[in-house]
């Protein structure tokens, strides 16, 4: 094992040419994951609430749309956003943003069902108590049900973020200079130590994802307040 490529390329892999140039490498991976993580949490919350509150054709339409997002590979969705967003908005959309949009949509679709299940899991008694106290359906949701549901669901949100960090590597395919893309670049230049390069890259991802994984473990172990 020869990790001498790190002498020249460590900072390039970690943050690209930043601060002279735009952020890249592991830094861009984190930014990309954080951006799509936040957006997917908001989307997931909105989808989940709508899945519980909507009725009839609107519910069927949303279920179909979410099913579609879950049925196609993330890679395909990235191709779609990369190609469609500029046409729809008539402006040049940077690759990072189109990847973020794709990841947010997929993450939101998965979280949406989780949020809906969490809301349903809170129990009819809480709803009835809220309505009896004079809350509207939305009021009871906002002030009684959702806070309880979200506390239960925190681990699944974090799990979804682990998936997001891993999926952010797919940005490679449209040439976004995040960690995986820079790794292939460095690999093509160094040529002689491919195993070491990809082991090192794997280790960086492992630190990010393993850290979140550990957090879920600790959250689950902590005795939950009722």
């Amino acid at each position: 094992m020869d990790f001498s490529f790190l002498q020249d390329d460590l900072t390039y892999l970690l943050w690209g040419t930043f601060p002279e140039g735009p952020p890249g490498g592991a830094l861009l991976t984190l930014l990309l994951s954080a951006g799509s993580g936040l957006a997917s949490a908001l989307l997931g919350l909105a989808f989940g609430v709508l899945l519980v509150m909507l009725r009839g054709p609107a519910l069927a339409a949303l279920t179909t749309a979410l099913g579609f997002l879950r049925a196609i590979p993330v890679l395909m969705l990235i191709f779609w956003t990369y190609f469609l967003l500029p046409i729809l908005f008539g402006v040049d959309v940077p690759g990072v943003l189109s990847v973020m949009a794709a990841l947010a949509l997929v993450g939101g679709a998965y979280l949406g069902h989780g949020v809906a299940a969490g809301i349903r899991g809170v129990g009819a008694g809480q709803w009835q108590a809220g309505l009896a106290l004079g809350f509207t359906r939305w009021g009871a949701l906002r002030h009684l049900v959702l806070p309880q549901a979200l506390r239960m669901m925190l681990p699944s949100f974090i799990n979804q973020w682990v998936t997001l960090i891993k999926d952010s590597s797919l940005a490679y395919i449209v040439g976004v200079p995040e960690l995986s893309f820079l790794a292939t670049q460095v690999n093509a230049r160094v040529m002689v130590h491919p195993a070491e390069i990809f082991l090192f890259i794997g280790a960086i991802y492992f630190v990010f994802c393993g850290g979140l994984d550990l957090l879920v473990y600790l959250l689950n172990r902590r005795p939950r307040r009722a």
Binding site: V162, I165, K166, D167, S168, S169, L170, Y172, S180, A183, T184, N187, P194, A195, E196, I197, F198, L199, I201, G202, Y205, F206, C209, G210, D213
Partner: peptide, 15 residues
Amino acid sequence: RNTPLLVQLFFWYFG
């Protein structure tokens, strides 16, 4: 489970 499949595939193919 804590590393991207893409990086794993690069490892198997290049490494």
